[in-house]
Nucleic acid binder design. Structure first.
Length: 465
RNA sequence: GCCCCCAUCGUCCAGCGGCCUAGGACGCCUGCCUUUCACGCAGGUAACACGGGUUCGAAUCCCGUUGGGGGUGCCA
């Protein structure tokens, strides 16, 4: 029997990195065992039913290379099956009508001195269906739900502690718990791989499964959560979680996938950065960790830098386009002054130094402006605290006035000025010309600028001392 | 509150009873390379939460404590 897994996101408007990780692990599992991945959109809540929300899930998955074999299916389109299931549960006595709102339930709980929540008040009243009624599932009073989680081992939940949960809202729509059971059964899902935040819903789904007599149950595997530095579940409000956002910032899809695969799982041979094909080959669901993992951008930066450096330079140049033209990345120079030839000439050096594509502009901005803005720290360090800086700049200005305008001569001239003064002349020259004390090897690039522009910058810097 | 889950360097991962004086990676620090920075290379820093068991032997198994997290919706 071939394994069938599913990625079943709720369309919330964008793909969350945590969801992407779930999708990836489902995909890795399917790939590694030759199984199938089904994409199913869990939009039982009407508020989530917007076409643009679907795109926000499908497109990033595609660019990450997470492919699926079936779908997307929409739970909203399967609503009739879910409604039938609810009716069946009512008929069989597994569920009943309840006319209490959430507030009613809380008020009753407060009166009775019970913790807030629903305590089965409508259970045996035999209430009729009504316009504002919900349907609740009658959870067993005794016994427990036991299942074996691939990652966590045996899980046990006491039925008596499960409240009679809502399976049909007052507007008549079934909730995801029903949809989950029915759809997983109908789609012959063999393994449910999802975040640990859903662990507590599993016994409810399993109870429905039995009540509905749906046959063989899927095997569950609950992945550890992705957390922020405060160890809290990654959240849309306070954390950077939009996958698309990372993509537009210039993280490469392959690097993102590689990094995500390393959160909760590790290759047995300790080689972390490697092609996805190898990860598929080594991946074992049972080897996935139980503890939550911090989504560390510093590590992502490192991995992404490795991927960028491994690119053929032409490809790097092509990928850089939206960043150098100020489309994906804000740029400090006039886009009209940007010269692709100049960038292409220095691209190999830039490629060596960036962690992500959006880092590119800062390395090349000085090539496309009239006067540079000095980086404050660079200025302090090299110019204010540097020795003999005025003399160095005077010497360079003099030398540059009639030096032959090519990289070798410029470099030699600066070196000679330094030698003559017994001082380091390279860094002051760099700050004066580029505005920063670090960056790409500069003389080839400087030779592409006009002599007057360069002399102007040197004099401007000299005047500030 | 109640239910559930988790616990190895700051971070991610390895370790599945002896191979562990705990390994790799990121970060950080040092040195080399170098016209700067970066890359690269060579080093260094740093962890089995605690307490009880079980066992000839425990990071590995069990129990408890502590700590962290998740859930507790007519969201999923």
């Amino acid at each position: 029997m071939t394994a069938r897994v599913r990625f079943a996101p709720a369309p919330t408007g964008f793909l969350h990195v945590g969801s992407a990780r779930s999708a990836l692990f489902n995909w890795l599992y399917a790939q590694s065992v030759g199984g199938e991945l089904i994409l199913r959109i869990e939009d039982t809540d009407a508020a989530l039913r917007k076409p643009e929300f679907i795109d926000a899930i499908v497109k990033p998955l595609q660019t990450l290379g997470i492919t699926w074999d079936e779908g997307p299916y929409y739970q909203s389109q399967r609503q009739q099956f879910h409604v039938d299931a609810v009716n069946q549960l009512v008929e069989k006595g597994h569920a009943y009508f309840c006319n209490l709102t959430r507030d009613d339930a809380d008020a009753l709980a407060a009166e009775a001195g019970l913790p807030s929540g629903y305590h089965g008040w409508s259970r045996d009243k035999g209430l009729p269906d009504g316009p504002d009624s919900v349907v609740r599932f009658r959870t067993p009073d005794e016994g427990e739900v036991v299942f074996n989680d691939i990652i966590r081992g045996e899980m046990r939940f006491t039925c008596a502690e499960l409240e009679d949960f809502v399976i049909r809202r007052s507007d008549g729509t079934p909730t995801f718990l029903v949809a989950n059971a029915v759809d997983d059964a109908d789609m012959s899902i063999s393994h449910v791989i999802r975040g640990e935040d859903l662990l507590n819903t599993t016994p409810k789904v399993l109870l429905l499964w039995d009540a509905l007599d749906l046959g063989d149950k899927p095997i569950y595997a609950h992945l550890p959560l992705l957390v922020n530095e405060q160890r809290k579940k990654l959240s849309k409000r306070r954390d950077d979680v939009s996958l698309i956002e990372f993509l537009t910032r210039g993280y490469l899809p392959a690097a993102l996938v590689n990094h995500l695969a390393l959160l909760g799982w590790g290759p047995p041979d300790d080689i972390e950065i490697r092609p996805i094909e190898e990860i598929v080959e080594l991946f074992k669901l049972e080897n996935v960790n139980k503890g939550s993992a911090f989504f560390d951008i510093a590590k992502l930066d490192h991995i992404n830098g490795e991927y960028i450096r491994a690119l053929p330079v032409e490809e790097f140049i092509a990928l850089a386009e939206p960043h150098v033209y100020g489309v994906d990345t804000e740029v400090t120079y006039e886009v009209a002054n940007y010269r692709p030839m100049v960038f292409e000439a220095v691209a190999e050096h830039v490629q060596q130094r960036v962690a992500k594509l959006s880092d590119i502009p800062q390395f090349i901005e000085w090539l496309f402006v009239d006067q540079v803005d000095y980086d404050e720290r660079s200025w302090t360090k090299a110019m204010k605290k540097g020795k003999q800086v005025p003399e160095i700049l005077d010497g360079i200005i003099e030398a540059f006035t009639d030096v032959e305008w090519n990289a070798e001569a410029l470099n030699a001239a600066v070196g000679a000025v330094g030698d003559a003064l017994g001082a380091r002349s390279q860094v002051p020259a760099r700050v004066a010309i580029t505005g920063r004390n670090s960056g790409i090897p500069m003389w080839d690039a400087v030779a592409m600028l006009d002599r007057d522009v360069v002399l102007g910058r040197l004099r401007a810097a000299r005047d500030l001392l």
